[in-house]
Design a binder for these strands. Structure first.
Lengths: 171, 171
DNA sequence: CGACGTGAGTTGAAGCATCAAGTAACCTGG
DNA sequence: CCAGGTTACTTGATGCTTCAACTCACGTCG
């Protein structure tokens, strides 16, 4: 609407609400997962993404890309998940410098046990508040913002890979 | 659209994008503030909210409410800001159990110096990607979600207090 | 008045994220 | 065939957040 550095009133309203959402929503989702499963939103995501992979394995760097994290962060988290017995790490037979993370049976059970409660919370906090148009708006607006956050476009391709014909194990 | 625990395809797409936004957007905003001002998004918010208050002062608990944080978190952060010379804490003359945080002149200068760059980043990441309808959608959808996150409605009243006739010192 | 409950705030410990550095495997040009 | 660069990953330190006590001030009910 204007091109100056400042935000106009409409933008300011939208921004304040967005700011509140991006602080409160992750906190609320984390709280549910922590309470019901002892997991972080992030560590749950790691388990969930592995659970959808054929063979339940993924190289660390591919996993890092799909969960939008640095390799460092992922390495720490997987170390903790490994200590819990939900994931194992093995050197890849194909290339000596990649290590593949594998979801164990216990890890799979954990995901299966955790997913419904998490999905219900997502539904409760987001989708119960929106009608069909609202869902469409949300998809549209977030797509636009993602385009700015991630000019490479990796995200728009990658985590949506499963969108069609996917059993809803994840959320 | 359906009432079961799972998300349908449209919802799943919207959720995956939303999840990406709520992880990447805070990280991007934090990165800009850290790089250009050595501040966290949260500590900047604290300074900015104080800067808009008449007298540049606010009781700790009121401040905690406007920045959506626990008192504990705020206390730690204000301690750091105090060490930097941007804020001071004094016991309130009115009630012996409230302490009021005051933005110092140096703190005010910090806000003034930091605000433009931050506002520009907000504009770049969010509003440059949206047209007028997009801004309206964003305001609408976030309002709906906020209603779920904060059933008390405090947020919808409180941080929007400044919406009209507010000089855009903040962002 | 005095015991109790509550509200406001601080503090310390523990967990998680981030950043900088380090290691090890692979590739490439000389 | 080996020197240097690059990719994949790990590690350790530092800092921020959270959680559970704890302190202190204020109201109130007997």
């Amino acid at each position: 609407m204007n091109e100056g550095p400042w935000l106009d009133d409409d933008e300011q309203r939208a921004w304040r609400r967005t700011a509140a959402v991006i602080t409160l929503l992750p906190a609320a989702l984390d709280a549910q997962l922590q309470r019901d499963a002892g997991l972080t939103q992030f560590s749950y995501l790691v388990l969930a993404m592995l659970s959808e992979e054929p063979g339940r394995t993924m190289p660390m760097s591919a996993l890092a890309a799909t969960v939008n994290s640095s390799l460092s962060r992922l390495s720490h988290v997987v170390a903790r998940l490994e200590a819990q017995g939900w994931v194992t790490r093995e050197p890849s037979p194909e290339s000596g410098r990649v290590t593949v993370a594998r979801l164990t049976d216990a890890g799979m059970e954990k995901v299966v046990a955790t997913a419904p409660g998490h999905a219900a919370e997502v539904r409760r906090l987001i989708f119960d508040a929106l009608d069909g148009d609202g869902v469409a708006s949300l998809a549209c607006v977030t797509a636009a913002i993602l385009g700015r956050l991630d000019p490479s476009g990796a995200l728009r391709a990658n985590p949506l890979r499963h969108e069609t014909g996917d059993r809803p194990t994840t959320a």
